[in-house]
Design a protein around this nucleic acid. Structure first.
Lengths: 138, 138
DNA sequence: TTGATTTTCACCCAAACGGGTGAAGACAAT
DNA sequence: ATTGTCTTCACCCGTTTGGGTGAAAATCAA
């Protein structure tokens, strides 16, 4: 998960350099500045949306007093844990989660235990409620 | 929801006009174009993030086809069933629901059975997910 | 008052779940 | 290379839940 942040950071840097280069080569013709500006604006608008989608935070969810102690987001869960959590929130029992993910029921139980620990809950229904509260799942 | 889109659309339009105006007044000094470009890029980056945050859809819950056949609301449940359903959605186990409502665990089970039947589900987590999907509980 | 609905509770049994421990292989980071 | 994390799986045990049946009060409408 740390790796992902680095990757996107590098990607962003490359993108910025590209734009900078384009700027320098275009600066000789000050005629179509407006068009160019619009292009840059559009590109960065899309980029902003993209970044927001990727680096999405839990956003502190409206008027509910968010647990100040446990502010979690997707990054605090491993990929597999997020898989399990997704199925869990849709009401799948352990066996079906196991089938869907192609792993054993025991493995699902292990992931669930870790999920419960991270969320500070003691059963699947609380986990589902908490996950939705923290906007970890849609 | 429609209203919100219109509002943000109008806001975006106003913003674009403002930027356009600023562009026309600045175009006389082609010196600090780079700086100006950077500003526009930054602004639209932030704007993109903002838009993505605000116009973010509830995601329509993945790929589950919503039951067209069973459109239930609160009226289809008895008062006591709604009580149980509420605690259920908060992740309470049967025993605690029983304590909170001052009834026996067996009675809670009976209510749950009826709830499952009405929602067309087979366990409490599915019931919680369905109840939220149907907006029976907040 | 009669009948329908709701609410309450009991018993039984099988399945699912939660908690603990242990451990193996993969893979990235230091 | 060693550490750490992730992922996978197994075993045991007790608790919880789900499903079925039955039934007694209370409430409410016809």
């Amino acid at each position: 998960m740390t790796m992902m942040i680095v990757r996107y950071g590098a990607l962003l840097a490359v993108f910025l350099i590209a734009v900078e280069t384009a700027t320098r080569s275009y600066i000789s013709q000050p005629n179509d500045i407006e068009l160019y500006l619009g292009g840059v604006a559009a590109i960065f608008l899309v980029l902003g949306i993209f970044v927001a989608q990727k680096v999405k935070k839990p956003a502190a969810a409206d008027g509910n007093t968010p647990d100040q102690l446990s502010v979690l987001d997707r990054a605090d869960f491993s990929d597999r844990e997020l898989d399990v959590l997704l199925f869990l929130c849709h009401g799948y029992p352990n066996n079906e989660i196991a089938d869907q993910l192609g792993i054993s029921g025991n493995t699902v139980k292990t992931h669930l235990k870790n999920i419960y620990g991270k969320l500070g809950v003691s059963n699947r229904t609380q986990a589902a409620a908490e996950a939705k509260l923290l906007k970890i799942v849609g």
